[in-house]
Design a protein around this nucleic acid. Sequence first.
DNA 1: ATTTTTATTGAACAAGTGTATAATAAAATT
DNA 2: AATTTTATTATACACTTGTTCAATAAAAAT
Lengths: 188, 188
Amino acid sequence: MKKTDLRVIKTKETLHEALIHLLNGKPLTDISVTEMCREARVNRGTFYLHYGKVEDLFEEYFKEIMTDLTDSYMEPYRHVHILKTQQLDPSTIRIFHHIEKYKKFYRIVFSKSVPMSYYYLLFEQVNNLLNEDIRKYDLSSIDRDMMSAYQANAILGMAIEWHRKDFQQPATEMNALLVSILNYHLQQ
Amino acid sequence: MKKTDLRVIKTKETLHEALIHLLNGKPLTDISVTEMCREARVNRGTFYLHYGKVEDLFEEYFKEIMTDLTDSYMEPYRHVHILKTQQLDPSTIRIFHHIEKYKKFYRIVFSKSVPMSYYYLLFEQVNNLLNEDIRKYDLSSIDRDMMSAYQANAILGMAIEWHRKDFQQPATEMNALLVSILNYHLQQ
DNA sequence: ATTTTTATTGAACAAGTGTATAATAAAATT
DNA sequence: AATTTTATTATACACTTGTTCAATAAAAAT
């Protein structure tokens, strides 16, 4: 595939910067395309050449954050089988640290007015990692896709509750909580 | 509190009907306020007197569906402790039957372009029921809000995966799957 | 039945949306 | 360095949005 035109890269970068700048002043849903383009000094027609709405721009930005979740955080721990809870170390899953690091963006991702698409991106990322984890280590006959969807969204449920409490607890405490919840199921 | 004006009730009803009618032809996100009001033969100004955007109208509608989830389905089973998985009967949780019943609406609720608000309504409903369940029967020292958020969203994770497969499996099979996943955690 | 209250309407407004077109300028190709 | 390709721009268009206002009509209160 041929590499993208320099002008496109520059335009998108400028728009990204403008978005981040505007997000300091108002919620994502309140930012109009016109305002974005005025701020970025980019023609409105150019915007529509690359995106459909302001939310698409944030989605593109969030996808970059998603690669950080996989590359920097989850990847080095993938050798540990997450669902074998007995041997689960709190440091196994780094998702809470990741969310804490990008707290500013996850306040947007978890806000009720934004489209579901961001949540789905996050869900799919965690889901794929766990699904792969199950494929490698799990011999159970239970539907693997359901199993990973269950487990992945359970963790995101904690993230939602964490967000609701405005990320008060430190990420390490969230990890510890996850471990104790997983262990609780065994102790019953 | 004084009861609402008959005209308001009539207007809202007409708008609801128009929404349902339009949803047969196009996705929620593609329906404009103007189109809605043209269809309902309601003045656009009147719409803005009650709602802010088309999505709010669907939210109002979805809230009615939510009461069905609590009243008709979950309420009669609340005496059974859901998290005590050993004694969990597939019929304990009726959420999958509820979703199957309102399949048409949940295709919208789980679609990626709609706002998170519908998902949050659903989450809070299930979350509250499980939270109450834990309060009644659980003596564990684990953060109750986190525990219920974890468990509630885990179930919704299955619903998301179910939706992704376009609700192929029957609800009874989803119940059985939930039970086997919960039991698997114990059998490890 | 008459009066009072208030929801709905129609009209008008500035601003935003989404799309199309020709002119321009910047990058890629030769 | 000259040429070709294409992203960006300025402008214009019909349409939607969100709000305001006085006039009207429907419901509630007397």
